[in-house]
Design a protein around this nucleic acid. Sequence first.
DNA 1: AAAAAATGTAATGATTGATATTACATCAGA
DNA 2: TCTGATGTAATATCAATCATTACATTTTTT
Lengths: 146, 146
Amino acid sequence: MQISSRFTIAIHVFACMEIFGEDYKITSDFLASSINVNPVIIRKILSQLRNAGLIEVARGTGGTTTTRSIDQITFYDVYLAVDLLEKGELFHFHENPNPNCPVGNNIHAVMDGKLACIQKAMEEEMKKYTIADVADDIKQCLAVTE
Amino acid sequence: MQISSRFTIAIHVFACMEIFGEDYKITSDFLASSINVNPVIIRKILSQLRNAGLIEVARGTGGTTTTRSIDQITFYDVYLAVDLLEKGELFHFHENPNPNCPVGNNIHAVMDGKLACIQKAMEEEMKKYTIADVADDIKQCLAVTE
DNA sequence: AAAAAATGTAATGATTGATATTACATCAGA
DNA sequence: TCTGATGTAATATCAATCATTACATTTTTT
């Protein structure tokens, strides 16, 4: 099963805030038009980012701003905000192995540590990339094609 | 979104094959009873493992065997066999960013490499663990509690 | 005070994937 | 031939994603 597109959409949101923030007011309609999804989807994601403390959203007047420097916002921060895993577990373990079976009785305990390591490897790699990396790369793309 | 329990079930299958393989015939009913899911689910997973070349399943008579030593079967092998990702991509990218927007036009190219690195970090960690590791740990659990 | 523009959010629907279950054709060995 | 097993189609339930409509609420502007 894939990780929800909410994640890439959220990164896209931040990129728009950085690239267009000075010249435009960043509304959900504005974002929806760049990302090409429904504005309500954007608003839900903005809510999640706001709840995670990553952005502030102006009611009434509209507009979105980051609460800290974008080189301090990692992919992992965004992932946590937007892709709520049940109890934070990446792997879905089958619920009820047979406790009367020597394997069923121990499989969970034996695998948990290994699965946690795998999840951690992914999360640590996610922490290496920031919104600033994405914004810089896009700026470079734009500079080249000018 | 979580990774399907087919993955942990498949590991459980291999563990049963190793722990019980000498004393019992490993049928889908036998496995279903230890894992506590429907036998048809097990048969589907066995099919996937067979298609991936990891096991052989005897028709008619029944029974399952591995095609190679279990210290040569990694979590990654099992994951690939069982959790078919669309085009192998862990992340679901929003499909149609606006090509007329400077951000929408470049976001995909700019992010793809980073997402691939994250996915690779996870896959490389998966390659570190084998079925033998799991089986050994279970044997140790059983030795202690005897 | 009213209008305009935007957010917050509930409600509904379509679609997809996971899992469970029934049913039955097929296969191999006794 | 009978029995026990696999292979697989068909169907159902459930949860999650994403789209969409509708509307209450908030803030600024006029």
